[in-house]
């Protein structure tokens, strides 16, 4: 096994200490890991498997089942476009097209070439009243029009360089 960075083990340990005694803890622990790293790294999975005495296969079957968990490191900017019913009817497909065009992502792909941006479709972010909506990292953008895309992306890019 790859050795784990000590401070990392401490953080993961804190999560384990809280959840280990509880029945059915795996998903909550994975939430903790995902929150820390943005994904579930291979060596952490192995570490969890041995700490929790669960087969690695169990961890992978769970991680790959739930959309919330990723096996790959996240992009710097995750743009989640809501494709719930309300947003779909009010133009989410056009938004996605526009975003991907602006960022030069091919229609079937999710990441930009440098993996800085990821455009993904998600289901209802709970602001249906503001449809169509998207979330960039944690921030929600609502009542979007296709012409809003360019300025929004510009602001992000400027933020990034500053």
């Amino acid at each position: 096994m790859e050795t784990l960075h000590e401070e990392i083990t401490d953080e993961i340990r804190a999560i384990l200490d809280k959840w280990k005694p509880k029945e059915g803890n795996l998903i909550m622990i994975l939430h903790g890991v995902q929150q820390r790293y943005g994904y579930v790294p291979w060596n952490i999975s192995k570490f969890l498997a041995s700490e929790l005495s669960v087969p690695l296969a169990r961890i992978f079957e769970v991680v790959t089942f739930y959309n919330f968990f990723n096996l790959e490191a996240p992009a710097d900017y995750k743009i989640s476009v809501c494709t719930g019913t309300a947003c779909h009817l009010k133009g989410a497909p056009v938004l996605i097209q526009g975003l991907k065009k602006q960022l030069k992502i091919s229609p079937k792909a999710q990441y930009t070439e440098d993996r800085k941006f990821k455009v993904e479709e998600v289901r209802c972010v709970g602001c249906c009243g503001l449809a169509p909506a998207m979330v960039i990292n944690e921030e929600v953008y609502g009542r979007l029009k296709p012409e809003d895309i360019e300025p929004t992306l510009e602001t992000i890019k400027i933020e990034e360089t500053s």
Binding site: L56, A57, I59, E61
Partner: peptide, 19 residues
């Protein structure tokens, strides 16, 4: 042994080893 499991979901479900 747990060499095999189901990964992913829907029509993409596949029986595979972890990872």
């Amino acid at each position: 042994v747990w060499a095999l499991t189901f990964l992913d979901r829907s029509y993409q479900v596949r029986m595979r080893p972890a990872g």
